[in-house]
Computed example of a mutant assay.
Amino acid sequence: MNHIDMKNIGLTEEFIQEANKYKDLYIGRITSQYKNGYKVITSNGELPAEISGKFRHNVKSLSEYPAVGDFVLVDRTNHSQGNGIIHHVLTRKSAFERKVAGNTTDTQVVAANIDTIFICMSLNNDFNLRRLERYLSIAWDSSAIPVIVLTKSDLCNDIDVKLKEVASIAFGVDVLVTTSISNDGYRSLQKYLSSGKTLAFIGSSGVGKSTLINCLLGQSLLDTSEIRSDDKGRHTTTRRDLIIFPNLGVVIDTPGMRELGIISADLTKSFADIDELASKCRFSDCTHKSEPNCAVQQAINDQILSVDRLESYWKLKKETKYDGLNSRMIEKEKINEMFHSMGGMKNARKYIKEKSRNKER
């Protein structure tokens, strides 16, 4: 059985230290998720696994179940004596989450412990700025770094116009333009591959996520489908999969998402322009609708900000639990959530100091 370099696939000292608290269990990483089980990769290779009865009994929400990208503790490293049993999920350093369709409270973890999220959107009828704002808001909230990947540039006649539109909403985000018909149309993505790093490809069906991953791999490992004649994508990837790149980390491929419901989002980053304008409003609790001396409404009058973007901001804010809060209140709410179960204003202060230090750099 081949030995797996666990550090290449993202295992860090923090995960190892947390795992050391538990006896007689082994560290693995979830590579695939099925209806009734998982595949887990350990230092001795991949094995099928299921969660323990105790784990199942203690789980309170869908998001607590293992997800692709999670580091978990299993009772074995090969399945010669049957499936592995998952006993614990180690603390996630990041997670891309969405609201479960048709459910108002439950959260689905699309991918866990990711460093970079490639938000893929094709430069044809899939192109949609409002949807991109939604993806960016969730991506920033995940604690991973978003990168926008515009695919199928060969099908677009007005790339410069589209790029200007994306630049108007994607502050501080790298934007890559790719094509699958050229051998070097994907090379801009290669610089993000690195030992120990995890990349996740996210986007609608048929935008070319699997094609890009195949190009990076240099082989056709994943099935792909073109967008149909009506420009709607076919579902090719039907489950999340973690793919190992030798000495270059891992990539998570995800199914196309028709719906992207928001539970939590970081609007202060995805709408940094509105946040900056809001700081100049006369009233700190300005709703940017009818108050006097509103800098946001002034920006619309001056055609610096579009009405569509402001309406998108209101819509996303309403969908999240932060409706009615300004950016300072949102930050406070997030800190309260983060440290509620950790007993810790002490930890909160440490977090704030660290954040301030990072801003100064």
Rank of each mutant, 00 (worst) to 15 (best):
M338L: 14
H79A: 15
S195Q: 10
L123E: 06
T105N: 14
E331V: 12
L217N: 00
C156R: 02
Y313C: 11
S168P: 03
K54E: 13
V72H: 04
L242W: 03
T42W: 01
F55L: 13
V109W: 03
A167G: 12
K269C: 05
G249C: 10
T105E: 10
V100D: 07
Q297I: 03
D323W: 08
F118I: 01
A299L: 09
V296N: 01
G344H: 15
H79M: 08
V109L: 00
L267Y: 00
A265V: 15
L248D: 13
K334C: 11
I9Q: 09
S264N: 09
N2M: 05
M342E: 14
I252T: 01
Y135M: 09
G82F: 13
A348S: 14
V207C: 07
E319G: 06
K23V: 12
I9L: 07
I30F: 07
L221Y: 10
S270A: 15
D5I: 02
A67K: 05
I85D: 02
D158C: 12
L163H: 09
K232N: 07
G343R: 14
P292Q: 04
V250K: 00
F171D: 15
K269N: 05
T178N: 11
I9S: 04
I335S: 04
R187G: 02
N113G: 03
K60E: 03
D231V: 09
T236R: 05
V89M: 05
L129D: 03
L90Q: 03
D308R: 06
H57E: 07
T179H: 09
Q108A: 11
D141P: 08
T178S: 12
K350T: 13
K317V: 04
E360M: 13
G344Y: 15
E360H: 14
Q298E: 12
Q190L: 13
K164M: 07
T320H: 01
I227H: 01
I27C: 02
R328Y: 04
K23R: 15
K7M: 11
T42R: 02
A299E: 06
N214R: 06
E333V: 03
D5N: 15
Y34V: 14
N124K: 14
I138Y: 01
V147D: 07
L129R: 04
I262A: 04
K54V: 14
S356P: 04
C120G: 00
K35V: 14
L193I: 13
R309I: 02
E276H: 03
R228T: 02
P292S: 06
F283H: 13
S94G: 00
D266R: 06
A170P: 01
V161C: 06
S143V: 11
D24T: 11
I114D: 08
K350C: 09
D223V: 06
D24H: 15
K99H: 04
